[in-house]
Design a protein around this nucleic acid. Sequence first.
DNA 1: ACCCATTTGTCCGTATGTATA
DNA 2: ATATACATACGGACAAATGGG
Lengths: 259, 259
Amino acid sequence: MNLVQTPTLMNQISNGVPAMAEPTRMRRARGLVNTVVENLSNRIRNGEIKPATKLPTESEIMLQFDVSRTVVREAISHLQANRLVETRHGIGTFALSPQENANFQISNVDFETVADVIALLELRISLETEAAGLAAQRRSPEHLKTMQNLLHDFETAVQNEANTVPSDFAFHLEVAKATGNRHFADLMTYLGTMVIPRTRVNTDNNAPEGRLSYLKRVHGEHETIYNAIHNQDADAARAAMRTHLSNSKDRLRKAQSEL
Amino acid sequence: MNLVQTPTLMNQISNGVPAMAEPTRMRRARGLVNTVVENLSNRIRNGEIKPATKLPTESEIMLQFDVSRTVVREAISHLQANRLVETRHGIGTFALSPQENANFQISNVDFETVADVIALLELRISLETEAAGLAAQRRSPEHLKTMQNLLHDFETAVQNEANTVPSDFAFHLEVAKATGNRHFADLMTYLGTMVIPRTRVNTDNNAPEGRLSYLKRVHGEHETIYNAIHNQDADAARAAMRTHLSNSKDRLRKAQSEL
DNA sequence: ACCCATTTGTCCGTATGTATA
DNA sequence: ATATACATACGGACAAATGGG
């Protein structure tokens, strides 16, 4: 059974040679796979391998780098993971355009300090202020109905001392939906999934006035926003939304300065 | 040399058995890798393997599914590509929370019609109007200097009949950077990489006034924005940016109605 | 400070199936 | 129908990182 060892041993030897022969290379690329990945990544990114064109075949890459098939396949697997290439069975591997990789992301480190949360809130102010204005112009009767239901849900949650976050967020999301512009709702949804699970800061208890009066004020601000959207008054809707979110921002700033 | 065939053959047989033994399973998972990937994916998504907890070791997975390590490693590679797990050398592979997967993306189908481009422009109005206001409050002398340089670059490009898009976009991006809030610049960068490569619609030639006078007007609008930011007049900066982008939107609407 | 077991990472080889031209 | 190239498996050996004793 272990007769297989013989070729393996030989390979280990012929393997060690090229790895040691280039110690002058950038020390970052520690392994053969990494070397191949970085080389191909760079060639794709700097345009030497243009999008939608075929990469060299696996055997050609094997020869170019003097590595085994496994290394090449592992390298291509990494490139696929990074969305730099796409492999089509029996044809070859093709470079993808960098656009198809790009996205907008907020990482976990963006939630560490109060200043981080304020920065996110500024983005929300930017997004939602305009969304409220557009919603005032374009809302359908169905949008208004849903908003009203959500306002009612919020009131119920306040009275029952239940969690108000879901109906609060749902109201804001419905405003975004009422713009008729997918992107507003999409961005809001994304921000919601990022922000909601971390309600350490900016909780009800941060309000000096006490939970109940704070939530009642929030509800009142929501109603002001709703009325402006209902009356198709874009300027008033924008102003109401800006006031609403700016209040949260001020509260956070106060909490920050008290630390 | 070809003595190696013996174990391989045996494996092929013992391999075929479990694959055929469960024809009742969902027919989608054709390969062994797919089987492992789906099983682990499900266990992560339905919470059986909780976020931040360790998956079984590679050897354990090999035994559980009766597959080789190659299959296991390939499967884990797929899970990494889907951002479901993260592997730490010498420790193990850990499940990630779904949040870490979420992102905001604009797909290619969002560029097909003029209405799509208008929708994107509305998002830009939302983002950049507020960014201009914040920039007016927070811009550093370096920001102002860079903006001035970019305005000059734009003028030069106009005179040389060169491509004005890079300096145009760079100016807008610099405004976003001057907010001091990473998210504004990040989102602008993302939108830029998505929009810039597709300058079919909204090209200079769409302007009825002719390329030169159109570009001169754009330059004038940029200067108005710059002056407001320079004078730290947030309201004026917001208004100037809104006017600037609303002009583009109007031009697109006109082009759309003429189709 | 060191070793050691565990676990993943890197490397090699081979056989066979499958899709495309 | 053949040749080419990729897909999917198997196997083994050694390197490197980590954590505990």
